[in-house]
C-alpha cells in the first residue's frame, strides 16, 4: 500500500488530463492582466541598434514600411507596426506602406496607417500612402527598384500614383532612406537578399519570435541594422520610445506562462525519471 501511493501519484502526474494543463495556462495568462506585475523589460542590443538607426534618420526622410504579416500573428506584429509608425511619424518621416501578404495585409495596413497617421495629424497621400498588395513578392520587391508605378499603377484606394504628392517624390528605391520591415514570413529573406543586397538600402525588421533566431544571422552579417524579436522585442522598442502599449502590458503574462512551462517540463521529467527508476528495463 505504502508502495502504491507514490506510484499512483507519479502515474497521475504523467497522465494528467490535458484540460487541467489548459486551465493552468489560461489562468497564468489572464491573472497578470488583472494584477500587472510591471516588471522592467531590459533592452537587448539588437533592439537598441534598430531604435538608434531610426532615430538617426534625418527628419522628413522617406521610409518604406511593409506590412508583411498575416492576421494570425497580429498579437506580435501589429504592436510592432504601431510602434514603428509612431516613431516615424514623430520624426515627421514620410511613410510608404505596402503589403506582400494577400490575406489581410493591405486591409490591416490601411487601418493602421489611418489611425496612427490620425494621431499625428498626418494627411493621406501627402505624409503617407498605402500601396496595397500585389502578388509575388519577389517580382514586387525587384520591380520597385526600377519603377514603383510599374508594379503599383495605383495605390490601394485606386488613385493613380502620379496623383499622390508623396509618390511623385518616390519613383523607386533611390528616394527611400530606410525600410522598416514588419513580417511573420520568409519575405524578410527577400527584402534582405534582393533589396538590401542589390540596392543597398538600410533596413531593420520586426519579426515574430519564431523567425527571430534565423533573422539574427542577418543582423550579425550587417544585412539588417537591428531586429525586434516577437512581443519581447516590441516591448523593448515601446520602452525606448517611452510609449508603453500592448507589448509591454503582455510581458507579465509572458513571464508567468514561460515559468509555468518550465515547471511543466521539470515536473514531466521528474515523473519520467522516477517511474523509470521504479520499473527497470527488462
Amino acid at each position: 500500500m505504502a508502495d502504491e501511493t507514490p506510484k499512483s501519484f507519479l502515474a497521475r502526474i504523467q497522465n494528467i488530463d490535458r484540460r487541467v494543463l489548459y486551465a493552468l495556462i489560461f489562468v497564468s495568462v489572464i491573472v497578470p492582466l488583472f494584477l500587472p506585475l510591471k516588471l522592467p523589460v531590459p533592452v537587448t542590443p539588437e533592439t537598441q541598434n534598430f531604435f538608434d538607426a531610426v532615430e538617426a534618420l534625418p527628419d522628413s526622410s522617406i521610409v518604406m514600411l511593409p506590412f508583411d504579416f498575416w492576421p494570425s500573428t497580429l498579437a506580435e506584429t501589429e504592436p510592432m507596426a504601431v510602434v514603428g509608425l509612431r516613431h516615424l511619424f514623430r520624426k515627421n518621416c514620410y511613410v510608404v506602406g505596402l503589403s506582400n501578404v494577400g490575406m489581410g495585409g493591405p486591409t490591416i495596413a490601411d487601418r493602421l496607417l489611418d489611425s496612427i497617421g490620425g494621431e499625428f495629424h498626418k494627411t493621406y497621400g501627402v505624409d503617407y500612402v498605402n500601396l496595397g498588395y500585389k502578388p509575388d513578392y519577389r517580382a514586387v520587391m525587384l520591380g520597385m527598384g526600377t519603377r514603383i508605378s510599374d508594379i503599383f499603377p495605383t495605390d490601394y484606394r485606386d488613385t493613380p500614383l502620379e496623383e499622390l504628392p508623396l509618390m511623385r517624390r518616390v519613383p523607386n528605391y533611390d528616394s527611400v532612406a530606410f525600410i522598416f520591415i514588419v513580417s511573420d514570413n520568409v519575405a524578410v529573406d527577400y527584402w534582405v537578399g534582393l533589396v538590401n543586397a542589390r540596392f543597398g538600402i538600410p533596413m531593420g525588421a520586426g519579426v515574430t519570435a519564431v523567425m527571430a533566431p534565423k533573422s539574427l544571422s542577418f543582423v550579425q552579417a550587417n544585412q539588417l541594422v537591428g531586429l525586434l524579436g516577437g512581443m519581447k522585442g516590441c516591448a523593448e522598442y515601446e520602452n525606448l520610445l517611452e510609449r508603453p502599449a500592448r507589448a509591454i502590458r503582455g510581458m507579465d503574462s509572458q513571464s508567468m506562462i514561460h515559468l509555468l512551462i518550465v515547471v511543466f517540463i521539470i515536473m514531466g521529467n521528474v515523473g519520467y525519471f522516477a517511474s523509470k527508476r521504479r520499473v527497470p528495463r527488462s
Binding site: L37, V41, P42, K232, M251, Q254, S255, H258, L259
Partner: peptide, 10 residues
C-alpha cells in the same frame, strides 16, 4: 525561455 522574459532575471 527564462532569459527572454522579465521574470527570468529574478
Amino acid at each position: 525561455m527564462l532569459g527572454r522574459v522579465p521574470m527570468g532575471q529574478y
